[in-house]
């Protein structure tokens, strides 16, 4: 998951390294570091904003390592959903229990259906739906799409997923 964190460093040499080392040692991926040297806090510390990706279970370790080394953690927030996707389903969407279809995604814990547009032309005619899905990362989005395809197959629904635009 991606974490954004505000920390405060003492204004003595070597402090930034104290903050960055635990992230790299725990195999985190540092995305940005903004060092506000000009904006000293009333406590005389220097505010720094970090954004990094790290496995969920390692976040608390990082925070305690910071605190042990005297790096103040002012705020740690998780940017939960990084990936936004859309997918179309065609078929008897309502009658094959749409609640269950959505629950299958929502119950993964890593992806959620956040929007649903539905078009039902006539009774007996297949319906069409566009689902918007948020997921915590690319891999999770792919997993959610695969899960949705499996569910759709069981329910005889046609799924139209986006092309992979990553390499373009």
């Amino acid at each position: 998951m991606r974490v954004s964190m505000d920390i405060e460093l003492k204004d003595i040499p070597g402090q930034l390294l104290l903050a960055l080392n635990p992230i790299s040692e725990l195999k985190g991926n540092l995305i940005s570091v903004v060092h506000h040297h000009e904006k000293r806090t009333p406590r005389g510390t220097i505010p720094v904003q970090l954004v990094f990706e790290i496995d969920h279970e390692k976040l608390n370790t990082i925070i305690s390592r910071f605190e042990d080394s005297g790096v103040g953690v002012v705020r740690a927030g998780e940017e939960r959903f990084l990936e936004h996707g859309a997918i179309i389903m065609i078929g008897h969407i309502i009658h094959t229990d749409i609640q269950d279809t959505i629950d299958k995604i929502d119950s993964t814990g890593f992806a959620e259906v956040i929007d649903l547009s539905l078009s039902m032309p006539r009774i007996e005619k297949p319906s069409s739906a566009l689902l918007k899905i948020d997921a915590v990362g690319k891999k999770e989005m792919n997993d959610a799409m695969s899960l949705l395809k499996t569910v759709a197959k069981e329910k005889d629904l046609l799924v139209i997923e986006p092309i992979d635009t990553e390499l373009m």
């Binding site: 859309a86 179309i88 065609i90 078009s119 032309p121 297949p126 046609l158 092309i163």
Partner: peptide, 27 residues
């Protein structure tokens, strides 16, 4: 393989509203 025979015009409109077109893509 999945063909195009089950595609509805409504699904194409939904796609369009969200900035997509639907194409039969081989990969």
């Amino acid at each position: 393989v999945t063909g195009i025979t089950k595609i509805t015009p409504e699904s194409l409109m939904l796609a369009q509203d969200d900035g997509f077109v639907v194409k039969l893509i081989g990969e």
